[in-house]
């Protein structure tokens, strides 16, 4: 009888392959999130990260104080506005990019991605140079003896800058979805008597809904969580839940900040779920 060397018990290959991802996700996402959840139930203290003992007071305050509720409302309203603007602006561009056979396609594609090529702080300062009260645009207006416009330190500037940077996140999923629609479906619809508008409403839009759905979710979630742009372009005059969370952290009220952050995350999740549910229904309804 031949003696076989005992094989060492080994991990399944699949698990081995997934290990780096599991470790990274675990260390960088799961652990911090768990920590945030625990933190949100701790007793706040102004002199150190938290005082001993646990409480639900952080949530109770946030959910009963009209200040925070209004802030949550503002944050969601801004995110919805940004998402809607992105959708309206991105759709024609995505359609064109998906259908064009032009040799400029690569250039157009790069242009769509261009907002992401500049870091958030530099991009924000770029906007400040343009939009400030004595910025480029207002200087030109004054030179033409026109009244200056309030372009930043308000929601307008924040929405403008966020729409700009989130556009690629809307264009790309839309483009993917539209590319998946056979152009002959549009021709078939037209041969059956549908005008361009009706072709869009009855064929292209319903079939691109998966792209609309994912693009909107991406932009909405990113908008809810945006901090640097509202902070720099709002300059303390545009308040969202994220800026408020950071204010709390500055004041050493970590447990309060954690609770607010989790409330925002939950509100975002609920909004995304509602949207996915609603748009899925529309998708079937439009057909």
């Amino acid at each position: 009888m031949s003696e076989r060397p005992a094989r060492p018990t080994k991990l399944p290959l699949g698990l081995l392959l997934a290990l780096p991802v599991l470790v990274t996700v675990g260390a960088l996402i799961v652990v911090p999130y768990v920590n945030i959840v625990i933190m949100s139930f701790r007793t706040p203290s102004t002199t150190r990260p938290y005082a001993p003992g646990f409480t639900i007071d952080n949530y109770a305050r946030a959910l009963t104080d009209s200040f925070y509720l209004e802030l949550l409302g503002d944050t969601v309203r801004l995110a919805v506005m940004i998402t809607a603007l992105c959708l309206v602006i991105a759709y024609p561009a995505a359609y064109h990019l998906a259908r064009t056979t032009s040799r400029w396609r690569g250039v157009l594609y790069a242009l769509v991605l261009s907002p992401l090529l500049v870091g958030v702080v530099i991009r924000s300062f770029g906007w400040i140079i343009l939009l400030a009260n004595n910025g480029l645009i207002n200087q030109m207006l004054r030179a033409l003896e026109l009244p200056a416009l309030p372009l930043m330190y308000n929601e307008f500037g924040v929405v403008l800058a966020l729409v700009h940077v989130f556009l690629p996140f809307m264009v790309l999923p839309l483009m993917g979805a539209i590319q998946g629609i056979d152009p002959r479906l549009e021709e078939a619809a037209r041969s059956l008597g549908a005008s361009r508008t009706k072709v869009f409403r009855r064929v292209v839009l319903p079939l691109s809904m998966p792209g609309v759905q994912s693009g909107c979710i991406l932009v909405f979630v990113l908008s809810c969580g945006a901090y640097v742009t509202p902070a720099l372009l709002g300059a303390g005059r545009v308040h969202t839940l994220t800026t408020e969370v950071v204010t709390m952290l500055d004041q050493f009220l970590w447990p309060r900040g954690a609770a607010l952050a989790l409330i925002l995350a939950s509100a975002g999740l609920i909004a995304v779920w509602l949207w996915a549910h609603f748009s899925g229904r529309t998708m079937r309804g439009l057909a």
Binding site: D182, R184, L185, E187, A188, A189, S191, L192, V203, P206, L207, M283, R284, L286, A287
Partner: peptide, 13 residues
Amino acid sequence: IGMVFQNYALFPH
């Protein structure tokens, strides 16, 4: 006109 396409082009939705 009524047109029939090679891949049928039926509306999948």
